[in-house]
């Protein structure tokens, strides 16, 4: 009885949502990375993370090729992170990009997955690191308000798609007889619509003149909204 049949059920995350998640994460970091050096480093790191993910996928069938690709990808990410930590002249630019690059790498590792049971944790950490980049961008005024809002929405989309990849893969496997691609795309589509609504609503409110509003009022309004949601969750 062969155990390693190609069709054997595995719990690996599904590729469709995984690719969507990585793309959304890259988009989020790209919006914050303003300078040419940052863009270049991001491109290298994304290429590395993609190669890492691809190598992990190949690992089961072709050990050598998969392993080589994974190691090369990791080296590219590490090199890009090293440059990001040292190269840009301004310290804020260094702080800004570093967590995002590492976050994309961790996100890719969660989608491999390195360890099936830890996939969700890796995705949470990866998306969290990307969000830290976006937050830092907001604090150091690294990007326009619109870009920051879109980047925040893209980070949440990245996490949503990646988590869906893990959950779908865990329940029906990454190579089911029926393609789960349509369900995944529908899910991502709905989340995308919500993101669009969120961005439009937020920017619309901002355009009306939130900047003129007392800062404390804005904070209190937001906290009130959060408390309302928490109460509704009960």
């Amino acid at each position: 009885m062969t155990v390693t049949e190609p069709s054997a059920f595995d719990h690996r995350p599904t590729p469709t949502s995984g690719v969507l998640g990585l793309a959304a994460g890259t988009f989020a970091v790209g919006l914050v990375a303003g300078t040419t050096v940052q863009r270049l480093l991001l491109t290298v790191a994304v290429g590395g993370a993609a190669a890492f993910a691809l190598g992990g996928r190949l690992w089961r069938r072709r050990r050598t090729a998969g392993g080589l690709l994974g190691v090369c990808g990791s080296l590219a990410v590490v090199a890009a992170a090293g440059y990001a930590a040292t190269r840009p002249e301004r310290v804020v630019h260094r702080l800004e990009l570093l967590p995002g690059l590492l976050g994309l790498w961790v996100l890719a590792a969660g989608l491999l997955p390195l360890r099936v049971r830890r996939g969700r944790l890796l995705i949470d950490i990866g998306a969290g690191l990307v969000f830290i980049t976006v937050l830092t961008g907001g604090v150091v005024r690294g990007a326009s308000t619109a870009a920051l809002v879109v980047a925040a929405a893209a980070t949440i989309l990245a996490w949503d798609a990646a988590e869906n990849a893990v959950s779908m893969g865990g329940q029906v496997g990454s190579c089911g007889a029926t393609d789960s691609r349509r369900a995944e795309l529908v899910h991502a589509g709905f989340s995308g619509c919500v993101a669009v609504v969120a961005v439009v609503a937020t920017l619309g409110v901002a355009r009306v003149g939130v900047d003129g509003l007392p800062f404390a009022a804005l904070v209190v309004l937001l906290l009130a909204a959060v408390v309302t949601i928490l109460v509704a969750h009960r």
Binding site: F131, V134, L135, G138, V139, R141, T145, L148, V149, A151, A152, A153, I156, V194, A195, V197, A198, V199, A201, T202, L203, V205, A206, V210, D211, F215, L218, V219, L222, L223, A225, V226, I229, L230
Partner: peptide
């Protein structure tokens, strides 16, 4: 919700309305 709280906290500490708007995006997803 945790992400929203984090953004609100950072926004208050750094006094950046843009970060608060990011929290608002999180509220919509919540």
């Amino acid at each position: 919700v945790g992400v929203v709280f984090l953004a609100v906290a950072v926004g208050i500490l750094a006094k950046r309305p843009a970060v608060l708007l990011m929290a608002a995006v999180g509220v919509v997803f919540a």
